[in-house]
Write a protein that binds this DNA or RNA. Structure first.
Lengths: 362, 362
DNA sequence: GTGAAAGCGCTAACAC
DNA sequence: GTGTTAGCGCTTTCAC
């Protein structure tokens, strides 16, 4: 037998491939599978124009040498990054910008999970809102934003420019970009009606920014007002607490209730559970008991609300149902398919902080 | 005048550049600044080997046509992605994996801010821990992980392989990778000693996994035990509640205290504030008042702890101080500079849930 | 159904 | 101090 013959079974190149596992390229896979790089690319991207048998061979080769795609090379070439940028409303108090509201964690967690499920990476942006300027520098496939933010015009522009984007917001307000979320007006109405049914007559509201009439804060406020009207109650100006002019500790809010309006017997904290919990505590500090003297209802249904004293009555936004839809909508847009807005079903979760339960409960 | 003459003042190319603003490339900048692409690259990366005047000209040109670097092209060429992957311990209960602990949001927020400050993007990974396998597919510049996780060996491997990595964990336990964090043993010791100083004698502990002797849970447990020893108190087996075998609602924990060990007068919830709050509520439900009957101390100092009833005594991990250090350490490693571990100063924040305050307070 | 070859936008040698 | 050139790893015409 010829000593110079090549031993086909243990090609030294194979060994090298193994050693460099992880930095293998399409070329390596191509060589091993005995096809061209083009075929490798097609096979790995599950192109229909490659024979099943070839596909299998390529996949085997890739697996054997531990090939993993270079995201950036692909992004450069195909203009697809497989990354979604997520934007949360970051409160900016001076330099110390913190995300304190646990709702965002639960949201982020749900989005991350859904994106991962779809094979997408999640980039958490420092920017609270998306706009065209940001888009030019971001280089991601699409965006998810919580709330319309202070510049809904930017969202409209983006959508018109064909940028894949889905916003966690009530879909009924603006139809010119894809929105997924609960009907804030209706849910706020439900929450306040719940208080009314409980016998509360003097109901205050703590809300976020009311400037923008399409903001969650405003919508919830609208629901609050309508509920009062429906019940034939007074919608007194002095009962409206704007969080933007108050501290996050709830002290100012509680003072507004106990001092300026001592007859208040309920508060709808549209600003969210975090604030609601702080308000409850401040009310207690001022000698009011919850729910006996003052009932409190929050918004968001954060997990900790179930463990406060009293347990927090709140409004669930249906993240479990809504977030997968939200993610689906971005993906559809990336694929160039139509992506309609979608209303998500929320519900009032009645717990101790508002006294009785009316069967709407958790 | 020759009608065919070119109007130099409004070069059509300029117009095109403006229209395509955002998709301008180094070539466009180079052309406009009258230099080569190499010079553009150098100028934009602030290379010292380019004259200030040229640099200024390039920068001006870039600004004028709205040039923005293509991250993926750069990543492909320079093997630098400008992205850090962040890993949080995601509890996996079946399919519904959620991140419920607000501490992680506060952590994430701080990291995001620090990374942004350094011009880096934050990728939030679905994976709870980093390892070599993950690294092969991740293609990011570096990693930040919260806690050692279940596989510290993986961290060691990574560090040995030269992968930039910084872990939020006590630095004293393992020195073979970069760790930044508080001294869990000492802080737990402080917290429990605080209870002892308060006159508590029968102190239970609720902890996470105790299997791994380098886990935060174990270290805090060790601090607990040592504090009891120092105080000459019993470290009774029956006072140890392992959260891995209990529900997150705190019911089981509270039952352990009230039923199996009714003489317990304090609980150190090493598992964290989230759990501590749930435990408090469960204790109250079982007829115990906090802190009168049972004092409770948590860990992490989440913001909501200040607003519960009673306000939560806890241990602050010094995120504000520590996280920037953590981020600095990853960056150092990316730059090939040495990155030592660093101990962060935490402190007991004494509030109502443990009764008296001893001046260590917030 | 598969291959050859041309780049995506950038940076890093290497010249000068 | 600046320009020329090659090529990072991939996808995608265009041939066949």
């Amino acid at each position: 037998m010829d000593l110079n013959s090549t031993n086909i079974n243990s090609d030294p190149k194979d060994v090298i491939d193994y050693i460099h596992a992880g930095s293998a390229t399409v070329d390596d896979v191509a060589r091993r599978a005995g096809v061209s790089t083009a075929t490798v690319s097609r096979a790995l991207n599950d192109s229909p124009s490659v024979r099943e048998e070839t596909k299998a061979r390529v996949e085997a080769a890739a697996r054997e040498i531990g090939y993993v795609m270079h995201r950036h090379a692909r992004a450069l070439r195909s203009q697809r990054t497989n990354t979604i940028s997520v934007h949360l409303p970051i409160p900016r108090s001076g330099d110390a910008e913190t995300l304190a509201n646990p709702f965002y964690l639960e949201f982020l967690s749900a989005v991350g999970s859904a994106l991962h499920h779809a094979g997408l990476d999640m980039l958490v942006s420092h920017a609270a809102t998306v706009d065209l300027d940001l888009h030019r520098t971001a280089q991601v496939d699409g965006y998810i934003q919580v709330g319309r933010g202070r510049n809904p015009g930017g969202l409209r522009e983006l959508a018109q420019a064909g940028v894949p984007l889905a916003v966690w917001a009530p879909p009924d307000v603006a139809t010119d970009y894809c929105a997924v979320g609960v009907d804030n007006v209706a849910l706020a109405h439900d929450a306040v009606s719940h208080l009314v049914a409980d016998g509360r007559r003097r109901i205050a509201v703590i809300t976020g920014d009311l400037d923008d009439t399409t903001s969650e804060g405003y919508l919830r406020f609208a629901g609050y007002r309508r509920a009062l009207e429906d019940a034939g109650l007074d919608a007194d100006e002095s009962l409206i607490g704007d969080l933007t002019s108050m501290d996050a500790s709830g002290v100012a809010a509680a003072r507004m209730i106990t001092q300026a309006n001592p007859e208040v017997d309920a508060v709808f904290v549209a600003a969210g559970d975090s604030t609601a919990i702080a308000v409850i505590r401040s009310l207690q500090d001022l000698g009011r008991s919850v729910p006996e003297d003052v009932a409190v209802v929050g918004f968001d249904n954060i997990q900790l609300g179930e463990f406060t004293h009293p347990r927090l009555t709140t409004v669930d936004q249906g993240l479990a149902q809504g977030v997968p839809i939200l993610v689906d909508r971005v993906i559809r847009q990336i694929d160039g398919r139509p992506a309609s807005s979608q209303k998500v079903t929320g519900r009032v979760v009645a717990r101790e902080s508002c006294g009785g339960t009316h069967g709407q409960d958790t």
